[in-house]
Amino acid sequence: MFATALSAPFWPLPPHRRLGSIAERSKQLVARLGLTNEDLCKLMEAIAARKDRQAFSQLFAFFAPRVKGFGIRRGVEPAAAEEIAQEALLAVWRKAETFDRRKASVATWVFTIVRNKHIDLFRRHAYPEVDIEELAETADDAAPADRALASAQDGSAVREAMRNLPAEQLLILQKAFYEDKSHRAIADELGLPLGTVKSRIRLALARMRGALPEAVHDHD
């Protein structure tokens, strides 16, 4: 069930990180080995369908250390990053029925939960979320609201596209997601004109769109 190879990361991994021994318990395996989106979807669906604690344990083993690592990379104290990881995984359990593999990969869905937990913890407000039901009533192209964004289904296409981004574009995405910096703050820090940062973001998004063609919409 589990993929045995980690896909190559788009930034260097610490040298001590190795694949675990097959003798280790399953949750440790899960934590160290790559899981495909398909694997993760099955775990999510087992949680949603029958409150499967074993599936949740595997999902926790995979995501909790990554969510904590993501928080630390965002500058959060380790103890708070662990609290966010626990709260986020608890929210994953509670919201499991709302996960829909046709709309997003598990990692994407978990990301939005983690982002909202960060904001809830540090800024004490809810983060307004896009209402995906709304387009059914107001869409100008009459497409069904649950149209699959096939691009989002498999994280590997996204990671591949990111590996192919020019370094100057990837750097800006990393500063946005890891350092919580706005385009204005990034421009200040890098000593670049705001227009240059904006155009790099525009180019990066165009490349992501090209790599994930199902979602192309010409609305400019």
């Binding site: 990361p9 969510v67 939005t112 982002r115 387009l135 691009s151 997601f177």
Partner: peptide
């Protein structure tokens, strides 16, 4: 819809950043 899809793609970038984040032991 166009901006919603753009946000979905960006959320997928965030998802990739989490799934490839260096794990920190809990």
């Amino acid at each position: 819809r166009g901006c919603r899809d753009e946000i979905e793609r960006l959320n997928a970038v965030g998802g990739a950043m989490i799934s490839e984040a260096s794990p920190a032991a809990v």
